[in-house]
Simulated assay, not measured.
Amino acid sequence: MINTYTLERYTSKNKKEWDDFALKCMQQHFFFQRDFLEYHKDRFKDYSLIVRDDKSKIVALFPATISAKIITSHAGVTFGGLLYRPRTFVQKVIVILSLIEEYYKLKGVFKLNYKVTPYVYKSEQGEEDVYALFKNDWKLIRRDFSTIININNTVSIDRSRNKNLKIAERGGVEVRESNDLSEFWNLLNINLNKRHTVNPTHSLVELQLLKTLFSKNICLIGGYRNGILLGGALLFITERVCKVQYSVNSEEGRKYKVLDAIFMSIINKNKLDFIDFGHSCENNGSVLNVGLSRFKYQFRGESLVHDFYEKDLRTLP
């Protein structure tokens, strides 16, 4: 079976067939389209692979970047790993993963890092790659704790969140979709610098570019009072999931509970299977931000973990 697959490095001439295959994969996200993988190509050196069968048809994709002889799948996206179609048999995934390991080892790579795609971003449970990682002796190195809302969950939202919504409504807070990424990003940047001395992962220029490239998948929800933006949430929208990629509250916004009003609006209008509030961890998952995770939990959140694996290729024969 091993000899029935060939691996090749992705080049720009493969863009259309890559994008076409990615759209049909069990792992579903616009992250995997080449326009997204390459919007920040000045920061990451691409080393993605295409896996073909003996008829030259694509059977899997491996979005990846390389730095200091370490391959990551993919350093420029939240998660990724091996992309394959629904109903792919587990042994096939095990073999392909082994071939990927061998391919990179022959290219002088020291280590592989693998970001598992959480199940909510898959068209089926699809954990063949997770078993393949175990079978191939990969090591779990990080686990982030995230919070999601399942649309079928009938648990009530905590009374404190409903109370804060009423405060926002009495204070004249208006929640609506917005196109002003600049105003939102400036508020986000100020907040992150003040509270954590860091900048947003995406620059304003990058967010504006992504909004242009993926206009149907990126949406900004703002919370306004007297026409002034006091808080907001930037959403990444896929077929099954509404992901809160960024959220921010100004000092004035906290006073009027703007973020509560925004989240309640997102929940009430959501028609997708899941809302993903993102992780509540620091230090590569080793520290749980209890206050943040409790805040998300009170919106009837459930737990979701996001796993990261690595393999030292120098141990291979």
Rank of each mutant, 00 (worst) to 15 (best):
T6H: 11
C25K: 06
K16A: 11
F32E: 00
F62V: 07
E8D: 09
S12D: 15
K55T: 14
E8S: 14
T11P: 04
Y39M: 10
T65C: 10
L49N: 04
D19I: 08
Q28H: 13
F62P: 01
A64F: 03
R9W: 00
Q27I: 09
L49R: 05
Y10R: 13
M26R: 13
Y10S: 13
E38T: 12
D20A: 10
R34Q: 13
F36N: 07
L23H: 09
I70L: 04
Y10W: 14
D46R: 04
T11Q: 15
Y10I: 14
D19A: 06
P63M: 09
A22I: 06
T65N: 14
K13Q: 14
T6D: 10
Q27E: 13
V51C: 11
E38W: 00
K69R: 14
Q28W: 05
I58D: 03
D42C: 03
F36P: 00
K41T: 00
D53A: 03
Q33K: 13
Q27W: 05
L61C: 08
L49H: 06
F21E: 12
S48L: 06
T6E: 12
D35P: 07
Y47N: 09
R43C: 07
F21D: 11
R43N: 10
K45G: 03
Q28P: 05
I58C: 05
L23Q: 14
C25I: 08
A22V: 06
T72Y: 00
R34W: 03
P63A: 09
A68V: 00
Q33L: 15
D20Q: 12
R43V: 01
Q27M: 12
E38V: 00
K13Y: 09
D19H: 06
I58Q: 04
S48F: 02
K55M: 10
F32T: 02
S48G: 10
R52W: 04
I50Q: 08
H40A: 11
D35H: 11
M26V: 10
S12E: 15
K24E: 10
L49A: 07
E38P: 00
L23Y: 08
F32M: 06
M26F: 03
K57L: 11
I70N: 07
D53N: 15
D53W: 03
K24T: 13
E38H: 05
K15G: 04
I66W: 01
N14L: 10
I58H: 04
D19Q: 08
K69P: 02
K55Q: 15
L49Y: 06
F31I: 11
S48H: 06
K15C: 11
C25P: 05
R43K: 15
V59G: 09
F62I: 09
F32A: 03
I66A: 02
K45C: 04
S56V: 07
Y39C: 13
Q28Y: 08
K24D: 07
F31L: 15
I70Y: 00
F32S: 01
D35F: 04
I58R: 05
F32K: 01
K57T: 11
P63Y: 08
Y10V: 13
